[in-house]
Design a protein around this nucleic acid. Structure first.
Length: 692
DNA sequence: TTTAGGG
DNA sequence: CCCTAAA
């Protein structure tokens, strides 16, 4: 049996601006794309999911300094007190909207999808799951999301604590419950006096959410004694107010095709194969498809404890779940994004997040600026050492941005009929948690094009406050299993609530996931780096630090299918479904893009001048021996692009400008070594001839 | 593994 | 940056 549900998170009252479909660059990695398959749908959903988390959570941890996080959007015109005590009340954005609400709606899958632009974009496999659009909205500020930080992250029992946990990526989603039965919009009221400052802000606690999981699911038992259900979120077809509805669909063989094509009970494998039937329009809309399989024996637990760690984690989750449930706190909060200028530097980073305080006279580094504006919180831990960079004088203009909605992927769960309701709940929890826990990548899309250069200022990118802001969008994509950037320890350290489970652990217990599509591969969402979480992906273009932001998006999009978290061990133990070996799971996780800095170029040029082209390994060792992330292939590629750059007109160049002087040297060196190479060949040839 | 190139 | 054929 299959339960079909779709839930969608959205903010009421927001407009749905035409969102340029953020796409991966037209010339995306062909290979990746080739590999992609129906699974991508899942990816999208996941993306959305994550996005939701981002929004809701507001922030993640991240930063090394463990400072507070804050957020992201900034308002050009508004002037908000930077004062840490600034309360929402005082915030201009809050005017007329002191009560912020967050809605969740669940609708029938057949219901027309309205009010969400994602569906379209998601139709494409590679599309971004969700988009945050900005607008120079002077209105609806109230609906704007506010990213506020929990004031006391460590206070137990305090909702902020939860928020924090969530933010850190290790929080338990479980704490949140969706009101399945309630037909009325749920809303979360933000304390008017919540502090929005760069420092810990009190924030948004939600409540009033009926427990979704409590809802009675009518399940049909398939031949295999397993129950499959799918959950997904969809926008409210009727309007801005998300109505929570519950729709259960029986997945009969007949209906299967229609509903989602993945429910044929005959065999699990079969179910797998069915997945590909993404052709279905509904499927396309839903786009998501995650199949979670639970071990039949899970019984009470529903999950198998693989090991102590897992068990432990599980416990945590369980607790979280329970507590969350009882408290009825909903983790998702609607927040306003403010750009907090405070994250300007590594040590100070009191904020990182997605917030931007509308303050004027901000004269931060361009990169910082763009970073912040991109919605990515500047990781406090990231040292933003760009003093050297040409300073960009940001004017007083700020750009207002707002996030519309997110989408949660449809989940398919297969669980034995003899499993307990509790296990079912947990299973769902796991699934959701796992997906949300991966963190996400943020990309900036302007006029339909992805803005890749993180160093570019908004102004330079054409995103001005007076411009068509509606052309600006964000892509929030689930963080794939990619390892967190090789940052120093500081880069990963984060202040997490003590009770907060580490990201790593939290995914371990993930139930076996069955993804739609045979080709779908499953893997552990958080393979290597425990540190993986939102914060890690947000950015930093420090030389030695990766600057994932935009580039990472693409990658994620491409690898979104990788989002399905699976505990390999569990899979094995459960022996439920012939899962694909997670082996090549990370499937070539695309590396994050790390633009070469001028100094790096300088080093490269110098090395090549000395060693010549064709000896990249030597060049690497000579000039980039300690730059682990630069491979000789990278250097070779860079040289290639440098030569190209040097040949084109300065107007056609993009990215951080390379001093003409260096480019000149590039051409000279290139010419010289090319000539040498030619001579060498000539020599060889003549020698060969002589021998013959 | 490195190079060299195309994608 | 990725992927690969060649070396």
């Amino acid at each position: 049996m299959v339960l079909h549900k779709r839930l969608d998170y959205g903010f009421n009252g927001y407009q749905v601006p035409p969102i340029p479909r953020a796409t991966r660059s037209a010339r995306g990695r062909g290979n990746i794309r080739k590999k992609s398959d129906g699974n991508e749908m899942c990816a999208f959903d996941l993306l959305t999911t994550v996005a939701g988390k981002l929004l809701l959570e507001g922030e993640s941890t991240s930063n090394s300094s463990g400072k507070d996080r804050s957020a992201v959007v900034k308002d050009p015109t508004e002037t908000v007190k930077e004062n840490e005590d600034t309360s929402l009340k005082e915030n201009p954005y809050n005017e007329g909207c002191q009560e912020r609400r967050f809605f969740i709606s669940q609708i029938v899958s057949e219901a027309p999808v309205v009010n969400h632009c994602l569906s379209k974009s998601t139709d494409t496999l590679s599309g971004p799951a969700s988009v945050i659009t900005s607008s120079d909205c002077s209105e609806k500020l109230g609906s704007a999301e506010q990213f506020i930080h929990g004031e006391s992250k460590f206070e137990s029992g305090n909702c902020s604590t939860k928020a924090e946990q969530e933010a850190s990526g290790s929080g338990d989603f479980s704490s949140c419950t969706l009101g399945a039965e309630s037909k009325k919009p749920m809303n979360i009221d933000l304390p008017i006096d919540a502090k929005l400052s760069t420092n810990k802000t009190a924030a948004i606690c939600s409540s009033e959410f009926p427990d979704l999981w409590d809802r009675k699911y009518s399940m049909l038992v398939g031949p295999e004694n397993t129950v499959k259900l799918s959950l997904s979120m969809d926008p409210d077809p009727f309007g801005s107010f998300p109505v929570i509805r519950n729709d259960v669909q029986l997945a009969n063989k007949d209906d299967d095709e229609k509903s989602c094509g993945c429910t044929q009970p005959s065999t699990r494998n079969k179910a797998f194969r069915q997945a590909p039937c993404l052709e279905d329009w509904r499927m396309r809309k839903l786009q998501a498809s995650k199949y979670w399989e639970v071990h039949p024996q899970s019984g009470e637990e529903g999950l198998v404890n693989v090991d102590g760690e897992t068990s432990h984690v599980y416990q945590n989750r369980k607790n979280g779940y329970m507590s969350g449930r009882s408290q009825r706190d909903f983790p998702f909060k609607k927040r306003k994004l403010y750009y907090c200028n405070s994250f300007s530097n590594s040590n100070g980073g009191s904020s990182d997040g997605i917030c931007s305080s509308p303050k004027k006279n901000i004269n931060r580094d361009a990169s910082d600026y763009s970073r912040a504006s991109s919605g990515a919180r500047a990781a406090a831990g990231t040292s933003i050492s760009k003093g050297a960079r040409a300073s960009f004088r940001s004017n007083d203009s700020h750009v207002k941005l707002k996030i519309k909605s997110f989408r949660v992927p449809e989940l398919f769960v297969e669980i034995p009929e003899n499993a307990t309701v509790g296990s079912l709940k947990r299973t769902v929890m796991e699934a959701v948690t796992t997906i949300l826990g991966g963190g996400l990548h943020i990309g900036v899309v302007f006029q339909g094009k992805k803005v890749r250069d993180d160093n570019k200022t908004l102004f330079q990118a054409g995103i001005s406050h007076e411009g068509k802001l509606d052309a600006v969008g964000f892509t929030l994509e689930p963080n794939s299993s990619r390892a967190s950037p090789p940052l120093g320890p500081e880069g990963r350290s984060r202040a997490l609530p003590s009770e907060t489970p580490q990201p790593l652990t939290r995914c371990s217990p993930a139930p076996t996931v069955i993804c739609n599509g045979i080709q779908q591969r499953t893997y552990n969402a958080f393979p290597d780096h425990p540190g993986t979480n939102l914060s890690n992906f947000i950015e930093s273009d420090h030389d030695s630090a990766p600057s994932p932001t935009d580039a990472s998006l693409e990658k994620n999009a491409a690898d979104s299918r990788a989002l399905v978290p699976v505990a390999a061990i569990d899979a094995e133990a459960l022996a439920v479904v012939p899962m694909r070996k997670p082996k090549r799971s990370e499937t070539a996780q695309r590396r994050i893009r790390r633009p070469f800095s001028v100094s790096e170029v300088e080093a490269l040029v110098q090395a090549v001048e000395k060693l010549g082209t064709g000896r990249w390994r030597d060049v690497k060792m000579r000039a980039f021996d300690n730059a682990k992330h630069r491979t000789y292939v990278d250097l070779k590629d860079k040289w290639k692009t440098l030569v190209h750059t040097a040949r084109i007109s300065p107007q056609q160049r993009r990215g951080e400008p390379v001093p003409q002087e260096l480019l000149d040297r590039v051409l000279i060196a290139h010419g010289y070594w090319s000539q040498q190479q030619a001579r060498q060949q000539m020599k060889h040839q003549s020698e060969t001839r002589l021998l013959l």
